[in-house]
Write a protein that binds this DNA or RNA. Sequence first.
DNA 1: CTGAAAGCGCTAACAC
DNA 2: GTGTTAGCGCTTTCAG
Lengths: 332, 332
Amino acid sequence: MSRRVTMADVAREAGVSLMTVSRALNDKDGISDATRERIQEVIVRLGYRPSSIARGLVTKRTGTIGLVVPDNSNPYFSEVARGVEHTAYANNYSVFLCNTEEDPEREKAVLHSLAEKYIDGLVLCSSRLTEEDLRDCLKDFSAQVLLNRLFTSSSATMVLAHDEQGARLAIQHLLERGHRLIGNLAGPERSYGGLMRVQGYAGALYDAGLSYEPDWIQHCAPTVDASQQAAAELLTRHPELTALVCFNDLVAVGALKACRNLGIAVPKDLAIVGFDDIPLASLVTPALTTIHVQRYEMGRLAGETLMRQIKGEKERSVHLLPVTLMIRDSAP
Amino acid sequence: MSRRVTMADVAREAGVSLMTVSRALNDKDGISDATRERIQEVIVRLGYRPSSIARGLVTKRTGTIGLVVPDNSNPYFSEVARGVEHTAYANNYSVFLCNTEEDPEREKAVLHSLAEKYIDGLVLCSSRLTEEDLRDCLKDFSAQVLLNRLFTSSSATMVLAHDEQGARLAIQHLLERGHRLIGNLAGPERSYGGLMRVQGYAGALYDAGLSYEPDWIQHCAPTVDASQQAAAELLTRHPELTALVCFNDLVAVGALKACRNLGIAVPKDLAIVGFDDIPLASLVTPALTTIHVQRYEMGRLAGETLMRQIKGEKERSVHLLPVTLMIRDSAP
DNA sequence: CTGAAAGCGCTAACAC
DNA sequence: GTGTTAGCGCTTTCAG
């Protein structure tokens, strides 16, 4: 590829000045229809592409945003990402996708790299950073939206699923079906969402005048394998449990597998409720009763919110997305 | 956020010239350790971030690549994306992620937008464009890797899964188990991978001295719902079939559901083989026998290949990734 | 070892 | 309607 064609080439070829080309490009007025068309023709003929790099240098706007997620191959985040990307595209923005792989060092690294790219805004998902590190990193960005994490010591805009409410819905559903001994496969110990979900579990039981054994709560990594083992331990330790709420659907599937091994029939012997409603949830057997989280909508909302922020509008700081109970076969 | 700190600020504060700061930044020599450290200190103190925009304008290298996929929420592509992003990160590159949503117009639009961003390279997945449109779009990029599509009239580098071989493995497995009447839920009619998979199906049967009815091949959209309906039609039309190979795992899951409705026992009455081995495959009941495609590795390889291309190395043009048969319960 | 000058491709501000 | 000048923040080239 030889030298790329520049605005100067177009100007020369069309017999006008740089400014006139620039105006034609940006649909500004103060230019006759004739020249506009002539320039347009030259642009097409030469295959000219304006350089958003050069433009960005002068306008201080790059037309790009950053999206940082723990792992794009996790269906939860890939769906969020699609929502963000969709909104960005609709607003003529491009998005940098970065995976942190749950590694705080890597998270800092990608945030620094995004800062050097002079992105116009940032959507940050579920950060592993301490509040201090986070504050330090975020100061490089003028527009930002935090997902799934409440960041108390900042005025950053946040978009959250109503995790606590979701857990409450799950418990209420089980209580209505007569369950009183409800275990909790609670996922990672230090996840903000996980914490809220445990809070909803405890709160719903408390409100019903019931209590739970701390030992009914078992943490585990949010994967099928880790959960399968954790579920086996929990259910062996507490065979009296008649129901299990799970951190998310993957964990619930692990529990399902554990039950199959232990000869526990779901939902007859044990009811299981998941969380998130990823596509998998409706495809396993028995299909999972779970809490539906609007992941695409979450990404979309984060994107829209960010776009408004970039345009300089004031934003309210917390958006709480409602969740709903999906009743399927694992806890009918 | 006030004005961002620039190299000039650092230079002034450190009492040196712009050039010296630039040299310190880029680890060039011709600068004493003392000044280097002093500059480093000032950089940290001021929170200076070099502008990759300004740098890009002069160096013609932006440190960014583009990744275009049909749909990032599809587990196939989200995994490919993770592979690409991982390699990019390891090479200090950032990735623009774009979804085309299978829309050729949108695909052209994102490619144009990426061209204006002056990305250093492009990974393009499974294009819907005609060869002519594609050639036209690709000429804006100096380094490029095409995924899952053979582009005959170009010297572009390509990374492909061995789709035909995969289909052959599936058929051979079924033949070994005595199946002779094998249907094909063949997915979208105009997908390159789909075409190759049908070719493998036909080829393997032909090589075994067997034939198949054209009517045993039924196309459908690659979703669970579309496939469920298509499978029901096919199996009703041809109850003699004893096995079914499917375009991908989602289609296979649709077939599984159709069988459940029709009272067909899998694998006893009908064996089913999927394709891709997405996480879902091992989690449904019965677990899917399927063809494993190394999606992450595909992304990684595409990324590595692109990086070498960017560095100016000559690349061989076609990388064919091997696939393997995963025997599970749907066709033991 | 360090600095001054020029320029990357574009737009903002002001002429004509 | 259109052109001229200056400059965005950096690196390259050439002097010292």
